[in-house]
Each structure stands twice: as structure tokens, then as C-alpha cells.
């Protein structure tokens, strides 16, 4: 369990992190979400004992980070932003070096970690010859080599291609089953895909701290259903579906070969079975019926760009 209390850090006049407090429970994947420059990296740097906070405290399993720095560093595996590794070193030598400093003598552990991170085929290349994706994976291997209880990953998927992103996310989810993972990102879908919990930061302050599901359902407003049929025109369709309870608005989508509509529905109502029955009754052929997934995007936008009173909620 990590307890952060009243943490602040300034660079000159700029308050990067401004009096934030939160708790991170064991065995959870926590996402630190925020726009660029919100203070995510600074927060993670303080958690990983790289930066010393100006005020406030970090406690990891009853140990104060300010007094037990070395002990806490041993418990943490940290991947800094964009994995700044020793460019001139060979991957194998680098991992061996980190392992030795961490007090690991078993040769097998290096190949084990290399296997998990899938870097076996680049072990004898220099780090500066690697692609961004491989570098990131070497960074991950570096963070995992001592099998730490806590993994802190700063933007683990930035600069990767879509396949690599999925791979890394799966790896993080796998690790999250047995470890405490804290990752930062400015990509919303990443949090939705991997995290149990989200902390949204903006301008150095926490604006939301809840489970991913709660945040998603807390989105104010409605959800959209895209509905495409043939065998009717829009006016008939509109009058038919408007009668379903929970439907607030029906708008047409232009330029389609089918009769298409976007239904705005109260977020608690489930109207899809009704839509299906309607179509059967009226002999419409359904080509598409898609419920737009409630997205954190809305919460995020609301919290980070909304007016002052919205922010304080």
C-alpha cells in the first residue's frame, strides 16, 4: 500500500505538483491520467525516489520514503519516460549490470525476464541500435528484473506501434494480477483498457480519483445508438422509435444508402431489444445497431477543460 499525503513539487515558480494526496492499494493497476504537463511524470519521479518532494510525504508499507530511500528503491521497479538507457551498452550487459546492482546473481533470471519481455533476439545488440519498441521493452525488463512488488511505468506505450501497444498492455495486465502497477498516460483508451483505477491530474492537482467503471458511469448525460435499417424512410423511423421509453432525441445521418439515425438515449435505459422488435414488426432489415461505448473521454474533457465549478466537484 502506497500512501501519498500532501505532496508538492515546484520547479522555480512553476508548481508542477500541488498538494496531492492519494492511496494506491496492493495488487491494483492504477492509471495516472492527465494532459501533457499535468504533473504525471513529476509525481512518478517522486514515487520512485528520484525527486525529493518540496513538502508532503510518501509512505510505502509503513516506510517513509524520505527516511528509507534505499529500502523503497529496492521494492520498486521503475521505467522512466522514454526509457533512457545506456546507449553504448549491449542489452545483455545492461541487464546483467542492473541485476548485479540489485543483488541478483542468477543468470537464469536475466533470460527469464528477457523471455517475458520478448527481447531474446536483441540481447547481443547495442541499445542505441534498437527500435523504440524494443528499447521500451528493455526498459520494462530492467524494471522487472528484481521481481519488484511495485512497478512504476511512465508512459509505457508511448512511441510504440499498435501491435506492440497491445502486447505491452497485455503484459501489464498480466503483471497487474500479482503486483501493484502505477502507470501514467495521456491516452484515455489505455486507461480504459488496462487500469482498475484512475487518478486524473490536471495542472498539478487531482481532479478525479475513482475506479475506471465508476468514472465511466459517472459521465453525465446520455449515450448514443447508431441504427441503420432499410425498408423505411427517416420520418417513419423517427416516429416509430420516438415512442420507446428513454429515447430523448433522434437525428438522421446523411449521405447513407440506408435509413440511418442516431438515437440519444438516457444512459440507464436499454432500448436495443425494443428496436429489434420494432424492426421485426415493421419488416425493416437491420444493417447496423451500435451502442457508442461510454468513454472516459467525456469525463476527462469535462474535468480538465471544464469551468471552475465543474472542476471542484
Amino acid at each position: 500500500m502506497i500512501t501519498v499525503d500532501g505532496l508538492s513539487k515546484s520547479y522555480g515558480d512553476f508548481k508542477a505538483v500541488d498538494d496531492i494526496s492519494f492511496k494506491i492499494r496492493d495488487g491494483e493497476i492504477t492509471g495516472l491520467l492527465g494532459p501533457n504537463g499535468a504533473g504525471k511524470t513529476t509525481t512518478l519521479r517522486m514515487l520512485s525516489c528520484y525527486l525529493t518532494p518540496d513538502s508532503g510525504s510518501i509512505t510505502v508499507d509503513e516506510k517513509k520514503s524520505a527516511e528509507n530511500t534505499l529500502d523503497i528503491k529496492k521494492m520498486i521497479g521503475y521505467l522512466p519516460e522514454s526509457a533512457p538507457l545506456y546507449a553504448e551498452m549491449m542489452v545483455y550487459d545492461y541487464l546483467k549490470y542492473v541485476a548485479e546492482i540489485r543483488g541478483i546473481t542468477e543468470e537464469e533470471r536475466i533470460s527469464e525476464v528477457a523471455g517475458i519481455c520478448r527481447i531474446n533476439d536483441v540481447m547481443h545488440k547495442n541499445i542505441n541500435e534498437l527500435s523504440k519498441g524494443y528499447k521500451q521493452r528493455v526498459g520494462l525488463a530492467h524494471a522487472m528484473i528484481h521481481d519488484p512488488q511495485i512497478l512504476i511505468l511512465d508512459e509505457p506505450t508511448s512511441g510504440l506501434d499498435p501491435i506492440e501497444i497491445v502486447e505491452i498492455r497485455n503484459l501489464i495486465k498480466e503483471l497487474g494480477k500479482s503486483k501493484t502497477v502505477i502507470l501514467s498516460t495521456h491516452i484515455l483508451s489505455e486507461v480504459e483498457a488496462t487500469c482498475d483505477r484512475v487518478i486524473i491530474i490536471n495542472r498539478g492537482r487531482i481532479v478525479a480519483d475513482d475506479s475506471t467503471e465508476n468514472l465511466q458511469s459517472a459521465v453525465k448525460g446520455d449515450k448514443d445508438i447508431i441504427f441503420r435499417v432499410s425498408g423505411t424512410d427517416f420520418i417513419a423511423l423517427k416516429s416509430a422509435v420516438s415512442g420507446i421509453g428513454g429515447v430523448k432525441n433522434v437525428a438522421s445521418i446523411d449521405g447513407e444508402e440506408f435509413t440511418s439515425a442516431v438515437l440519444t438515449v438516457d444512459h440507464q435505459a436499454e432500448v436495443r431489444p425494443e428496436l429489434f422488435r420494432l424492426a421485426v414488426q415493421n419488416n425493416w432489415v437491420i444493417y447496423e445497431m451500435k451502442q457508442e461505448h461510454l468513454s472516459l473521454e467525456n469525463v476527462f474533457r469535462e474535468l480538465t477543460t471544464g469551468s471552475e465549478d465543474e472542476k471542484s466537484k
Binding site: R45, S48, C49, Y50, L70, K73, K74, I76, Y78, P80, S82, P84, L85, Y86, A87, V98, I101, R102, H142
Partner: peptide, 14 residues
């Protein structure tokens, strides 16, 4: 310059 200073300082070394 390379940022590896961050790596060095987060390893358990004084």
C-alpha cells in the same frame, strides 16, 4: 544528457 541519470538514481545505490 541522455536521461540515464534517472535510471542510476532510482537503482538502490546511494
Amino acid at each position: 544528457q541522455s536521461g540515464s541519470f534517472e535510471i542510476l538514481m532510482t537503482l538502490p545505490v546511494s
